[in-house]
Design a binder for these strands. Structure first.
Lengths: 192, 192
DNA sequence: GTCTATACACAGATAGAC
DNA sequence: GTCTATCTGTGTATAGAC
């Protein structure tokens, strides 16, 4: 009864996993078509230019993230719990095989990406930073947190720490490192 | 009277600048030979395989960093000043054109790098982390700092924050962002 | 040590049959 | 929508002249 998932979505699924691991430039149309049992020309039918594919990839990822963040806000009014849930969300994108956040990888590729794609990545980070800022602000206003700096700057610091933690953990083949740093970074937000 | 700088070193100079910007895989032998006024075959004479070039690149970068860190230790006994100098060192590798720390870029490329090269990158981060740990430990022992967590974990957090800050700042074409986050991260070490 | 020339693989992309 | 076939560019790397 269920419709077969359309090819464009499955292309994006495979492409995303590959890009999360190797980066945008190190993934080819053939890399993507192979696991799907189709030919690279078929991928071009759905995404004529690689830039098209890249933009669709980031947009879909950002939409998905937006939904997750919205869900967290609805699930709890506590800043502590919101931040913990935010950290949990990272666990869903990090894999032992080396996959990390799509946009963290693309940030590394940024200077080689088409400008239109780089802007999409930038928007992803803005989304995260704005959300974190609001969570910290709200926690401060309600008295749950006692921030020692502006919510904007602390949000930026937390985001940066998580980005860097993913890179460091992956480079040293030590996924546990992300957890340790992530937990500590959040604790810092609560303690500041 | 001064000897002409040997070609191998100049190759590494050009290669490093290019890799700091685009990453390892997005830099070709022709990209490197062009600015030097030679042909790509000449680069192969000095570094037969690209992996050879990559390893030399990271080793030289790490040696240079080791010297800088040693210099900082000799220049001041204060943890505060040492951390500030450490941040200053980042300023020498970050450029408005998009160049950031060589090993931060290579961390993004890690899964596509030859294993021997990845290990060299890992060593670079270990070097930084060990140094930072010692600085924090020393500052704590002397009473200058009051750490609220282990020096190891705080060093990891600081390193991760700086890594991430470089990526975020570059992605949004806002070099000033690195400064702000970096300063705040160091302040966190002093305040913990 | 640097050159020209070239081998070989693979990339993104397109044309046209089915 | 997917295929085969192909174009064109570029990458790493090597052979051999100078």
């Amino acid at each position: 009864m269920s419709e077969p998932v359309d090819t464009a979505q499955r292309i994006l699924d495979v492409a995303q996993a590959l890009v999360q691991l190797r980066g945008f430039n190190a993934v080819s149309y053939t890399d993507i078509s192979g696991p799907l049992g189709i030919r690279n020309a078929s991928v071009h039918y759905h995404f004529p230019l690689k830039t098209d594919l890249g933009i669709s990839l980031v947009r879909r990822y950002r939409r998905h993230t937006e939904e997750q963040l919205e869900t967290i806000l609805n699930a709890t009014p506590s800043a502590r719990q919101r931040l913990n849930r935010y950290l949990e969300a990272y666990r869903t994108v990090i894999h032992p095989d080396g996959r990390i956040c799509l946009c963290t990888v693309l940030a590394g590729d940024a200077p080689t990406l088409p400008e239109s794609m780089r802007r999409e990545v930038e928007e992803f980070f803005k989304l995260n930073q704005t959300w974190l800022t609001q969570v910290l602000e709200h926690g401060n206003a309600s008295g749950e947190l006692q921030l020692r700096d502006t919510p904007e700057l602390l949000a930026e610091l937390l985001l940066a720490a998580l980005e860097g933690a993913m890179l460091l953990a992956r480079t040293s083949h030590a996924p546990g490192r992300f957890e340790a740093i992530g937990q500590r970074a959040i604790k810092a937000m609560l303690t500041f």
